[in-house]
Write a protein that binds this DNA or RNA. Structure first.
Lengths: 112, 112
DNA sequence: CAAAATACATAGTATAACAATGTATTATTG
DNA sequence: CAATAATACATTGTTATACTATGTATTTTG
């Protein structure tokens, strides 16, 4: 078993998956800021996202109108950029969910 | 819903996933040749793999000693390159399966 | 006999995750 | 109280992989 290979593979599996995870976390309307999303994802999925991965990802989602963002000043500390999912984001996530479920069912079949 | 975005996303989701699918198809010891794998995958998963994706993928798997290959002349037609999974391939696939299942369970939780 | 299908292969492009690095503020700890 | 860690944002360069396009060669089909 080649741990080096597995690590590279895991990094590849994250491509696309992270988008899917972030939209799923945002889909119920609760807003999150970037740093918070990283720990929320770590808590729920045992996936560690580097900051250098998350921030560009959020920018791409915003550029595609799947999320919005707004700066919120804090009483103390660094301002946070909060993200909200858009209607288009919800609709897109729905398509993703369909694809993901089909993919996973096929893999379940061939992997047993 | 942004079909352009969805298509790009699906292409990203395939990264890593294709490796996982190919190893899963080979894992029972039955050997396949490249062109055959493409149609087998299409049949089982509704995923279309371009030839320009599959052949480099198989070369990577071979370079990592996860599969072997051998040329087999045909009575008629073009020779085929048949692939077999190695013991290392089986062991690696086992780790992948563990990761895949955990990932998928977490996503199921956050996506409901 | 031309076109499609079979069967292999490679070169160039696009995309996304990651490591490294940077700025700035606040909290912790020795 | 000063050094370190944690919080919170961001960007640049590297790496890996899927895809498009293209190529070769044989066989089957209309």
């Amino acid at each position: 078993m080649n741990q080096e290979f597995i690590n590279k593979w895991i990094s590849q599996v994250k491509k696309g998956t992270l988008t899917f995870i972030v939209l799923n976390i945002l889909k119920n309307g609760k807003e999150y800021y970037g740093y918070d999303l990283i720990s929320e994802i770590k808590k729920n999925t045992a996936i560690e996202i580097a900051e250098g991965t998350l921030y560009p990802l959020m920018n791409r989602l915003k550029a595609e109108n799947l999320i919005t963002s707004k700066w919120v000043e804090q009483d103390s500390g660094i301002p946070r950029k909060y993200y909200n999912i858009t209607n288009e984001g919800v609709a897109t996530l729905k398509s993703m969910n369909t694809y993901w479920n089909e993919l996973n069912n096929s893999i379940l079949k061939i992997s047993k």
